[in-house]
Design a protein around this nucleic acid. Structure first.
Lengths: 252, 252
DNA sequence: TGATACTTTATAACCCGTTTTAATCCATGA
DNA sequence: TCATGGATTAAAACGGGTTATAAAGTATCA
């Protein structure tokens, strides 16, 4: 590596570090390319020379963490069905470790998020889930009479949609976790074998109970803020989905 | 309605019509608030006075068509499981009637798409699906031992994610349709009753075959463009998901 | 050391969505 | 007919992402 290249990669690192700082400090509101350049001690043109665009910079932030996530996932020791649910747990744990940061990065990236975003974030995850599901099938815990690609796509899409919904403030982290578990268990229960059926159904029931508990407590805290007018009550009754969303908006 | 109010609603209509024209003419690239104002023969400030923001205008475009969709859905006569799949067909048909328009509007709206978007587009659809699923349950075509809210959320989320993926250019309309059918059938098969099990499984198999056919033809057309280098081949092998996406990008 | 080649810099510009300001229009009611 | 008052207008401005330009800087090689 020539000295030019080191100073270039140094600058890249500076910019990514500055982006992290800004994102963590006060969200994507404070994250303009001009403030980023200032924070990194660099001119406004440099980030464009080195990264090309704002979303590339944000993608660089995500990529590092996602690599950590996958590495940790490789070290799990459990039966092949449990690993699937642990993958969910780890995703939630990753997000919970620094929620504002991830929320800001993910929603910022997916706002502009062209195909690049999908390709870099969703793509690798699809490969990962496909592998996990194949391993479960090989262990005779999932039936093999359903197209593995189709199944993996469905599952991955569900996970991804949930994370995105969380990032956009439509779900609490807890509800995201519960939805992912429920959706996963539901899908799995459609192709579970005799060996794994009970295990999967138990997972499904527990995720279901978790969701119900979350809804009840969201509703309760909504009631504490004051009585419901009729319109709000109707919305809540029909659209429990939005309970979290609304309390989130009001607290913002 | 006073004469002021008629001229106001006239202006609203002009603006929405101009937005339709611009969207259909050349996509969201041509859709700036300044060109919109010009097209509508109105000052830049007026759209803000009447609608408040760009996304409100786009939402107004979507809302009318979604209302049509739901109205048409109310007139279906089929057994309660078939209606679910017909709802998918009708969604696809709606989008196919004017793909560029819907793609542009949806991706533009969901790009800026704050919670408003979700609330107005996804919310009513959730209510709709929940009703359809309840009717199927009451007809003893779905088991009732799974929380209907949780189930409806999962299904709606899947449908919505698929439409969004299509709007963002990651899926062909055909693949979106196939994915929706497959995901729906898979979820239903987890809670199908003895009466409906065969029907649902047949749907699942046919959607699966549909997806495979789409992948094969996408791969074939990709091969016609020239031989695959190793890297591309690896991506395609592991990530069939992106076949459509890539050919879409290249043809753009 | 000095010339070369490449990068970064400063700066201005462009278009975007949005907001603000004061001026202007014009239907309404006296 | 004319004053009133709300709606629309023109125009400028703000901060945003991004790009273009020429000047300044700096590592490499002769």
């Amino acid at each position: 590596m020539t000295s030019w290249e080191t100073s270039k990669s140094q600058r890249r690192d500076d910019i990514v570090a500055a982006a992290r700082t800004l994102m963590r400090r006060s969200g994507d509101a404070a994250f303009s390319m001009r403030t980023l350049a200032e924070e990194a001690g660099v001119s406004i043109a440099t980030p464009y020379n080195l990264f090309g665009s704002k979303q590339s910079i944000l993608l660089a932030l995500l990529s590092a963490d996602l690599a950590d996530y996958e590495a940790a996932l490789a070290n799990l020791h459990a039966d092949e069905i449990e690993v699937l649910f642990q993958a969910v747990s780890m995703m939630t744990a990753t997000l919970r470790a620094d929620p504002e940061f991830y929320r800001n990065v993910m929603s910022a990236v997916s706002r502009d998020g062209g195909p690049e975003f999908r390709f870099m974030v969703s793509g690798p995850r699809y490969v990962l889930w496909k592998r996990l599901l194949r391993e479960a099938t090989e262990a005779d815990l999932l039936r093999s009479d359903v197209d593995p690609d189709a199944f993996a796509i469905t599952v991955t899409q569900q996970m991804f949609a949930n994370v995105q919904n969380w990032a956009q403030g439509q779900l609490s982290l807890d509800e995201m976790d519960a939805r992912m578990r429920f959706g996963l268990a539901l899908s799995l229960s459609a192709i579970a074998t005799r060996t794994s059926r009970d295990q999967v159904l138990a997972r499904q029931k527990s995720a279901e109970a978790l969701m119900q508990r979350i809804w009840r407590s969201a509703l309760a805290s909504r009631l504490e803020q004051g009585p419901l007018d009729d319109e709000t009550r109707a919305v809540l009754a029909d659209q429990l989905v939005h309970v979290e969303n609304q309390s989130l908006k009001e607290s913002a």
